Structure formats: C-alpha cells, structure tokens
Computed example of a mutant assay.
Amino acid sequence: MEHLINARASNIEISGIRKFFNMVAETEGIISLTIGQPDFPTPEHVKAAGIKAIHDDFTTYTHNAGMIDLRKAAAEYYLKKYDVDYDPDSEVIITAGASEAIDITFRTILDWDTEVILPGPVYPGYEPIIRLCGANPVYADTTTNNFKMTADIINSYITNKTRCIVLPYPSNPTGISLSEKELYEISELLRDKDIFVLADEIYSELVYERPHTSIAKFLKEKTIVINGLSKSHSMTGWRIGMLFATNNIAKHILKVHQYNITCATSISQKAALEALTVGFDDALPMRAEYKKRRDYVYNRLTKMGFDVVKPEGAFYFFVKIPVSGMKSFDFALSLAHEAKVAVVPGSAFSHLGEGYFRLSFAYSMEILEEGLNRIENYLISK
C-alpha cells in the first residue's frame, strides 16, 4: 500500500540531525556533541507545579488556546522581556512545543506554489512542513555575510510568489543573531509588502552579547512570533510552545491548532505557568554557564585553526571543515569512527551548510574538554 502514500509525505526525509545521531549512537565510547538538548534539569519548582497538577486532577481539556492564566503570563513575559504587547484573550496560543506552532502557522498562511524565504544554512524543521503545504522553500545564501539574513539579502530573493520570511534568530545551527538596526531595516523592507514574517525566537533567552530584540517590535501586524520553554527553562519534554500574533492572524491559526491537537497538555500548562511567573529569570544561571562554555569552545577551536564565527546566542558552533573538498557527512563520519566524537554534518542544514559541521555546547565542561581533545588529536593525526 506504500504506493498510495501522499507523495509530499513520502518525499520528505527524517531530519539529518537525528539521522546522523542515530547512526553513531551505538558506537562504543563515543562522545556526542550533536543534540540541542539542555543538560540542565527542569527547575525543581516547575517540576513541583506539574506534580501538583496531577495530584489536583488537573487532567482535562483546557481552552483550545491554553489556560487564560497562562496566556496572560505569556503576554506579560513578552511585554517585560521584549517590549511587545499582545492581548492574552485573542493574540496568544499555547502550543505543543514550538514545532507545532511552526506547523500550524505554515498550514494557515501558505498556499500551493507560494514561497518561503529561509536563511541558509538553517534548522531542517522548516522545509518539510513547507513542502507538505505544497509551497516551496527558497534558501537565501548567508555564508558570505557571517550567516546573517539582512534586508539586502532578503530583497534579492523576493518574488511575486513570496508569502513568508523566516527569521530564526538566535540561529540554529550558527548561533548568530540580528541586531535591532538589522531587524528594523528588514521591517522597513517588508512594511508595504504582503509578506508574513515567522520569527522563531525559541533561543531568545540564551543571548550573550546583547538583549534579544523581536522584529514584532517594529512589524507586529505582519509577524507571527514563535517561542517556548524548551531552551529557556530546560523543558524540552514538557512540549510547551507559545505563539503570538495579531488577532486577525491568530484567530485563523487557532482553528488549525484546534483540529490538530485540541489543546496543549494541561499538566504541562500548569508547569509552564510556574515557569513564566515564579521562574521568570530561570534562564539566567543557565545562560551564564552556556557563555562560559561558548568562550571555552571558541578559544579551543580557534587555537586549532578552525574558521568559525563566534555565536551570539543559542548553544551551537557552525564550523568550517578544514579539509579542502571533503564532504561534511564524510568528515563527520570519519570523526565519529576515528576520534569517537559525534558532530552534525553541515549538509543537514540545507545545501548551503555543505563544508561545515555543527557542534553543540549544551554539554558539561568535562564532556566538551574531552571531545575537543579528541578533535585536536584527530587533526594532528591527519
């Protein structure tokens, strides 16, 4: 019966990140620097709120958009953190992680044969959903601009089919972010154009050089902001995302969300309420530790001679492969087999990631030190 499967579904592939991780996971003694999974536990007070919700039998459906107390907390969080004001009654949707928020956004705004401009290289979770919608991803080459998709680059890719621009900053896989000036210039470019902005801000609390700025501050009427608690509060498994958009956009996204999952998990919503209120600044000690790790890894990589742009946020390095002409997959496989260190081939992040590899520093200093020692010895042996 496989021949009857929807062609758009059969033609997409499992994420290259997971594919490579699964391939080398069983290698004995391997150190993995692959997955973007915070190595901190969920804060104790957040876990306690989830446990209490279970004991209080808070195990039924909530409002489709999420508990109103949680939506109010999410709106207050965004206002205080990023100076963007949303109405919790009509402009906030609590989702099953940021991934569901991306899915329902694309399914709401994309039509057949429309185009979505993405910075390349980029997180591989966007393209499959775009294609499932019958739309087309258009990768803007950022490799000669320190991985920044600025207004001038975007402008060169806009056509009469462009429906959406994706701004995933801070970036997975590069760790690069955009300044307030750069975001304002993008907003001015798009102000008179019928083009949506999907601002994926899941790493907004993990920034090291300057506070995060949301493009919604300048272009709220066209922007769908996506965030969540997976990275900021180390709550990946709780699956709580937050979607912010003006009412005339959000009311249509909510319909897709309703028929997709009905509502986010009630227990996780209670934990999220605790995270956004009592845990308003829970990300700060984690961010401080990530910054120490970033600086350590950057110093080690540059001393080894790697060509690398210093990340401004998130917890990834996107590193140029030092062996001329070597494919990223071949390099990563060689590193895994010979040095017992797993990184993600750059080709997992679109064709524009070829020639690079991604290294995650969401691991302890001990693991990072050993992993980098092995990489250094591998380079010496070559």
Rank of each mutant, 00 (worst) to 15 (best):
61 Y>A: 12
224 I>V: 15
128 P>H: 09
122 V>D: 06
291 K>D: 15
280 F>S: 01
251 K>V: 01
287 R>L: 12
16 G>S: 13
31 I>P: 02
98 A>D: 07
237 G>N: 11
364 S>Y: 08
169 Y>T: 13
19 K>S: 09
342 A>C: 05
161 K>C: 00
310 K>S: 11
19 K>L: 09
100 E>N: 13
151 A>E: 08
127 E>T: 15
253 I>V: 09
127 E>A: 13
284 L>S: 12
41 P>N: 12
304 M>G: 09
132 L>Y: 11
368 L>G: 05
291 K>G: 05
70 L>H: 03
47 K>C: 13
241 G>V: 06
137 P>I: 05
274 E>Q: 08
297 V>A: 14
138 V>I: 11
138 V>W: 11
368 L>P: 01
300 R>P: 03
381 S>M: 06
372 L>S: 02
59 T>S: 11
219 L>W: 14
109 I>T: 06
192 D>G: 06
85 D>T: 05
287 R>P: 01
105 T>L: 11
335 L>Q: 02
53 A>F: 08
344 V>L: 10
171 S>L: 05
293 R>Q: 15
280 F>R: 10
128 P>T: 01
243 L>I: 05
154 I>G: 07
316 Y>Q: 08
381 S>G: 02
216 A>W: 07
148 K>C: 13
280 F>T: 03
139 Y>L: 12
371 G>R: 02
198 L>N: 03
203 Y>G: 00
115 E>C: 10
16 G>N: 10
291 K>A: 15
315 F>W: 02
348 A>K: 00
233 H>C: 10
36 G>N: 15
351 H>F: 06
169 Y>L: 04
152 D>Q: 10
36 G>D: 15
48 A>P: 02
169 Y>G: 10
